[in-house]
Design a protein around this nucleic acid. Structure first.
Lengths: 216, 216
DNA sequence: ATCGGAAGTTAGCGTCCGCTAACCTGGCCG
DNA sequence: CGGCCAGGTTAGCGGACGCTAACTTCCGAT
């Protein structure tokens, strides 16, 4: 079998090296702002050698984004499935997304900014995966936060993604504090998403748990 | 005097037409993804005619981002100065930023994504303005939210920007509902930013005001 | 009536960039 | 030992892109 995503051993395959280097560059300069030669140089080979591993520059972005979307989706799905009640499910979702964003800021940035640069088939695929991920959030939000109708829950989910994904612009706190802060803020925001502007009291908050990630 | 930013009459100057069209395109495709001819076509003239109004493509982005940063900063500053107490100042800041993001999603998107494409002097200018804007937020947060030290307040500010700026990906709610939702979520998130992971109770929330904008 | 400048046009320059072609090389298998 | 192929090299093509040059047109002031 030709190496598709990785070898099962420890060291990352060439394809993976290239993808992570490219992700870093795409995140910093944008897709069109990075040349083939730049990506090559970043892994110590030069320019066209990349075409031994990828069919095109577009294909790199395509594979990068589909893989991110898949990881996000099934990580999130797994947390929700493993939770005993909706409130813990929501906490787990938040923790999952926070950990992801903190561990892979470049990937998160690329996914946020470079969707438009995909080829049409790739974009369709990625969009579909993202929709399903949002759906997981929307369902969990609606089970947890009272008074949130479906469009509001969807908007709230996107807003929380924006909140959590702000991580790349925040190098100043250490990982543990950052995870705790983002977790608290995200849960508070989600809880507030259900409050009505009439006098209806909001859901009494699903307990601000220590949502921090393992600080390695 | 040649028209610099606008004529004082009603209709927008050519420069302004060009800048808003360019902002739309930059937001959708990224700076490098948009050609001079595309921008020209978007305002009904073709390609090089733009150089009657701007010295270069970089200059367009430069002027666009400085103007956004200036508007954000002094709008925010004005709201804070006009507020009687820190809690209302914070509510006003949130409302101001929400209104801005809802009224000009393209501009907000460009500012978030295309800072890296500026020339060095332009980037320095914009960065400086942004830093001052963040400072306004940080100060207000620290006066309002107890238990938020300076780095945490800074991170919280960035997180709330991310939350509010998620607007462009949310066409599904109408403007009034969206403004209210984002305002509620942002204030809740900020309040939670001060909560400690030990048992210290958080600040009792500065009253979720009807933060919606005028729905025209 | 004239003339000057603001605002457009098309042609075309130089450069950069994605990608292909042709060639080299070292390690593994028969 | 010989040959193959994965993985690398450099040279170069073709197209796109930013920008300039040269020329036209329209309008408003003298």
């Amino acid at each position: 079998m030709p190496p598709s995503t990785a070898s099962d051993n420890g060291k990352p395959s060439r394809r993976e090296q290239i993808l992570t280097a490219a992700a870093e560059l795409f995140a910093r300069h944008g897709f069109h702002g990075v040349g083939i030669d730049d990506i090559g140089a970043a892994v110590g080979i030069s320019g066209p050698a990349l075409y031994r591993h990828f069919r095109s520059k577009d294909a790199m972005l395509g594979e990068m984004l589909t893989s991110i979307s898949e990881r996000l989706l099934d990580g999130g799905q797994r947390r929700v499935d493993g939770a005993t009640d909706p409130a813990t499910a929501l906490r787990e979702l938040v923790r999952w997304h926070v950990d992801f964003a903190l561990d892979d800021p470049a990937l998160i940035t690329v996914q946020m900014r470079n969707l438009a640069n995909l080829t049409d088939p790739d974009r369709r695929r990625v969009r579909a995966l993202q929709r399903r991920y949002v759906e997981v959030w929307v369902d969990t939000i609606r089970e947890t936060v009272s008074g949130a109708d479906e469009p509001a829950a969807r908007a709230a989910a996107h807003a929380v993604f924006g909140l959590i994904n702000s991580t790349p612009h925040n190098a100043h706190l250490d990982r543990g504090q950052m995870a705790a802060l983002l977790g608290r803020m995200a849960l508070a925001a989600l809880t507030a998403a259900g409050a009505r502007d009439d006098g209806t009291p909001p859901t009494p908050a699903p307990a601000v748990a220590p949502a921090a990630g393992q600080v390695s």
